[in-house]
């Protein structure tokens, strides 16, 4: 596959981005990752992260090397991407309280702290940020976006894989994408 665009998997942290990365990798698109953040109980199959993504605002030199590959970028870092490239963004959507429950478990396990706010307040803030993000991305022609519901990965993987294949221009191994789905990973379901 010789793709001219950068494939991005995005969303809130703990919205299923790693699972989507596994699917797309199985489909045949190489993953851009440095494996610095190793697998753990929160992400048993690995995080699929690429550290330079966090420093894109200061150094976006990794971006052209990502053409033809898939890279994970959380929603708030998409603003930093240079606009002269083409991006196809698969954006994970998940029940916000499932996301927060998963974030809370991850923070507890790592012994780190996040925002000291109630779930309701944090949910409101994240929804506001996603709203703002949606306005922004729809007004930038460098980006095409496919919203994906997290639960569809488990309940309708074949249909979802077909949609992703079409969005990314075809040529993916749909059956391999379906086989990559691990329903046991659907944790923190409300």
């Amino acid at each position: 596959m010789n793709l001219s665009f950068v494939t991005i998997v995005s969303g809130l942290p703990r919205s299923g981005t790693s699972m989507m990365m596994q699917m797309i990798e199985a489909g045949g698109i190489p993953v851009l990752t440095d494996h610095q953040r190793t697998r753990d109980e929160d992400n048993p199959k690995g995080y699929y992260e690429f550290e330079p993504v966090k420093k894109t605002r200061d150094d976006p030199s990794w971006v052209p090397t990502a053409r033809g590959k898939v890279v994970k970028v959380i929603y708030s870092l998409l603003y930093d991407l240079p606009l002269e490239y083409e991006y196809r963004v698969i954006f994970m959507e998940r029940n916000i309280y499932e996301v927060l429950a998963s974030q809370k478990r991850m923070l507890q396990r790592s012994g780190k702290t996040g925002a000291n706010l109630s779930d309701d307040k944090l949910a409101e803030l994240f929804k506001g940020q996603l709203n703002k993000f949606n306005h922004w991305i729809h007004n930038h022609r460098s980006f095409a976006m496919l919203p994906v519901n997290y639960s569809d990965i488990v309940t309708a993987p074949q249909l979802l894989a077909e949609k992703i294949n079409t969005f990314l221009g075809g040529g993916l191994d749909i059956q391999a994408m379906v086989r990559a789905v691990d329903p046991a990973l659907y944790r923190n379901k409300l």
């Binding site: 942290p13 703990r14 953040r37 966090k54 959380i74 708030s76 870092l77 974030q103 991850m106 923070l107 790592s110 780190k112 702290t113 996040g114 925002a115 000291n116 706010l117 307040k121 944090l122 409101e124 803030l125 994240f126 929804k127 506001g128 940020q129 709203n131 703002k132 306005h135």
Partner: peptide, 21 residues
């Protein structure tokens, strides 16, 4: 939703930083 305060943005950043993203 759109008129979130700087404090709100800071809280979200704290959450994302804590999670390592």
């Amino acid at each position: 939703l759109l008129e979130a305060s700087p404090d709100d943005d800071k809280a979200v950043s704290e959450q994302l930083r804590g999670l390592g993203y």
